[in-house]
Design a binder for these strands. Structure first.
Lengths: 108, 108
DNA sequence: CAATATAATAACCCGTTGGTTATGCATTAC
DNA sequence: GTAATGCATAACCAACGGGTTATTATATTG
């Protein structure tokens, strides 16, 4: 019903193309739009639109490097998702607090 | 790009109304369609449609009880989401293996 | 400076989706 | 047996979303 804090995260990750972009940035590190486009199987504007949405959700950040933009994944942004999942699973074991903490520490 | 195993989970949870339904089932336990409709702010058919989608994603299950259907959350179904999040966060510390294991054990 | 390269924005198209009302089908109640 | 209740399905509709091509802005290269 009412969109919450983690709503844009769920929303942006619900699209397979966007998830693939995010996954690639997570696994292979910083990438230019051109590099991402090459493998995405869609046009550059489409990729740029997806990156914009991911960026607004806080899942990626882009830094200007000359005439190209290098995008990076921000895995810490997944923290609300971890929170929510833990809340829903009704599981509060201290052993698991580590992940959330780590994600927050990654924020530096 | 290519829809994977966790795709229907992300997809169904991307809608705020559906997420609210799932949350309520998680936090308050088994509910009838009428009870869910009462708080959802939308029509009963709309609620039924959402429940169908959640059910197809494995996130809820419905059992017939006379002329009413009681729906229950299946928190174990969140396991792929936990997997994926851990993979993306690049965090493999053994301390965290517990959550996934527990979710699987909840499946009984 | 002119030409090229990179990425973002604009304008548009079409399929999907989340909502509605109407209807059907069991099951319970009178 | 008839009426009423609970839920699912059908048919429909407006809004949204993900794609396209065309264009623009800014950097780099010759």
């Amino acid at each position: 019903m009412l969109p919450t804090l983690h709503d844009p995260i769920f929303r942006s990750l619900s699209d397979p193309t966007r998830r693939a972009l995010f996954e690639r940035l997570c696994l292979e590190g910083e990438q230019t739009v051109a590099a991402l486009t090459e493998q995405a199987g869609i046009s550059q504007p489409a990729v740029s639109k997806h990156l914009r949405i991911l960026k607004e959700a806080g899942l990626v950040s882009g830094r200007q490097a000359g005439r190209q933009t290098r995008y990076t994944a921000r895995a810490e942004a997944l923290a609300p998702l971890v929170d929510w999942t833990r809340a829903m699973s009704g599981f509060w074991d201290a052993k698991l607090d580590g992940l959330e903490d780590l994600l927050k520490r990654m924020d530096q």
